[in-house]
Amino acid sequence: RPRTRITDDQLRVLRQYFDINNSPSEEQIKEMADKSGLPQKVIKHWFRNTLFKERQ
C-alpha cells in the first residue's frame, strides 16, 4: 500500500484533536476521519506515532 500523504489542512485537524486528547476514542477517530477525509487506520497510526515522538 502506498504511503498516505497528509495535507496541511488534514494535519491541522489532527493536531487540534491531539492537543485536546492524545488518546481518542473510536467515535472521535470516526469524527476525525469524516472531517479530514483520511482513513481511520491512518489516523490511528498518526496518533500512535505522534504520541511516541512527544514522549521522547
Rank of each mutant, 00 (worst) to 15 (best):
R1A: 01
R1F: 03
R1S: 03
R1N: 14
R1L: 04
P2E: 15
P2S: 15
P2W: 01
P2A: 08
P2L: 14
R3L: 12
R3F: 04
R3T: 15
R3E: 15
R3S: 13
R3K: 05
R3Q: 10
R3H: 15
R3P: 08
R3W: 02
T4R: 03
T4G: 05
T4M: 15
T4H: 02
T4L: 08
T4Y: 12
T4S: 06
T4P: 07
R5T: 15
R5I: 15
R5G: 11
R5F: 14
R5E: 15
I6E: 03
I6K: 04
I6T: 02
I6A: 05
I6P: 08
I6N: 03
I6S: 02
I6V: 09
I6M: 15
T7A: 11
T7E: 08
T7N: 06
T7L: 04
T7V: 06
D8I: 08
D8R: 05
D8Y: 05
D8N: 05
D8W: 04
D8G: 10
D9A: 14
D9T: 13
D9W: 07
D9Q: 13
D9E: 13
D9N: 06
D9K: 13
Q10W: 01
Q10A: 04
Q10N: 02
Q10V: 02
L11Y: 04
L11T: 11
L11M: 11
L11W: 10
L11V: 05
L11H: 03
L11I: 08
R12K: 14
R12G: 10
R12N: 10
R12L: 09
V13M: 15
V13D: 06
L14K: 00
L14D: 00
L14E: 00
L14A: 00
L14F: 10
R15C: 05
R15H: 14
R15N: 12
R15Y: 08
R15I: 06
R15D: 04
R15E: 11
R15G: 05
Q16G: 12
Q16T: 12
Q16R: 12
Y17G: 10
Y17V: 07
Y17H: 08
F18C: 07
F18Q: 06
F18V: 04
F18K: 11
F18T: 08
F18W: 13
F18H: 05
F18R: 10
F18S: 09
F18A: 06
D19L: 13
D19H: 11
D19V: 13
D19W: 08
D19K: 14
D19C: 09
D19G: 08
D19F: 07
I20Y: 05
I20C: 14
I20K: 09
I20H: 12
I20F: 11
I20G: 11
I20T: 10
I20Q: 11
N21A: 12
N21P: 04
N21C: 08
N21V: 07
N21R: 08
N22V: 11
N22D: 06
N22K: 09
N22W: 06
S23M: 11
S23K: 10
S23A: 11
S23T: 14
S23Q: 12
S23R: 09
S23L: 07
P24M: 02
P24C: 02
P24R: 01
P24D: 01
P24S: 00
P24F: 01
P24T: 01
S25N: 06
S25H: 02
E26P: 13
E26C: 13
E26W: 04
E26Y: 12
E26L: 09
E26T: 10
E26S: 06
E26G: 06
E26V: 09
E26I: 14
E26N: 09
E27G: 10
E27M: 11
E27I: 10
E27V: 12
E27Y: 09
E27A: 13
Q28H: 10
Q28K: 04
Q28S: 06
Q28V: 10
Q28R: 05
Q28F: 02
I29S: 02
I29Q: 05
I29H: 04
I29D: 00
I29W: 03
K30F: 04
K30M: 08
K30R: 06
K30C: 05
K30T: 10
K30S: 06
K30G: 06
E31A: 07
E31I: 05
E31R: 04
E31Y: 02
E31T: 12
E31C: 05
M32Y: 04
M32P: 00
M32F: 03
M32Q: 01
M32R: 00
M32I: 06
A33K: 03
A33Q: 06
A33Y: 04
A33L: 02
D34A: 14
D34M: 09
D34R: 09
D34P: 01
D34C: 11
D34L: 08
D34T: 14
K35H: 02
K35S: 05
K35R: 07
K35D: 04
S36A: 13
S36Y: 06
S36F: 09
S36E: 08
S36I: 14
S36T: 15
S36P: 00
G37P: 00
G37S: 07
G37E: 07
G37T: 03
G37N: 08
G37I: 01
G37K: 11
L38H: 00
L38N: 00
L38P: 00
L38W: 01
L38F: 01
P39R: 07
P39K: 15
P39F: 01
P39T: 11
P39Q: 07
P39D: 12
Q40A: 14
Q40G: 09
Q40F: 07
Q40I: 07
Q40D: 10
Q40V: 11
Q40P: 15
Q40N: 14
K41P: 05
K41H: 04
K41V: 08
K41T: 14
K41C: 15
V42W: 08
V42S: 08
V42N: 07
V42M: 05
V42C: 14
V42R: 11
V42F: 04
V42T: 11
I43P: 00
I43M: 01
I43Y: 00
I43E: 01
I43L: 02
I43D: 00
I43W: 01
I43S: 00
I43C: 03
K44D: 09
K44P: 01
K44A: 09
K44I: 09
H45I: 09
H45L: 11
H45D: 15
H45V: 13
H45G: 12
H45T: 12
H45F: 12
H45W: 13
W46S: 00
W46M: 02
W46L: 02
W46E: 03
W46P: 01
W46D: 03
W46R: 01
W46T: 02
W46A: 01
F47D: 01
F47K: 01
F47V: 07
F47E: 01
F47S: 01
F47L: 05
F47P: 00
R48V: 09
R48Q: 12
R48Y: 03
R48L: 09
R48F: 11
R48I: 12
R48N: 15
R48M: 10
N49L: 08
N49E: 15
N49H: 02
N49I: 05
N49W: 12
N49G: 08
T50W: 06
T50N: 11
T50Q: 07
T50R: 10
T50I: 05
T50H: 10
L51D: 05
L51N: 12
L51R: 12
L51C: 09
L51E: 08
L51A: 11
L51G: 10
F52C: 12
F52K: 15
F52T: 15
F52R: 15
F52E: 12
F52V: 14
F52I: 04
K53H: 10
K53D: 06
K53M: 14
K53I: 08
K53S: 10
K53E: 12
K53R: 11
K53W: 04
K53G: 09
K53F: 06
E54G: 04
E54H: 14
E54S: 08
E54I: 15
R55T: 06
R55A: 08
R55N: 03
R55Q: 10
R55Y: 06
R55P: 03
R55V: 09
Q56L: 01
Q56F: 01
Q56A: 14
Q56T: 04
Q56G: 03
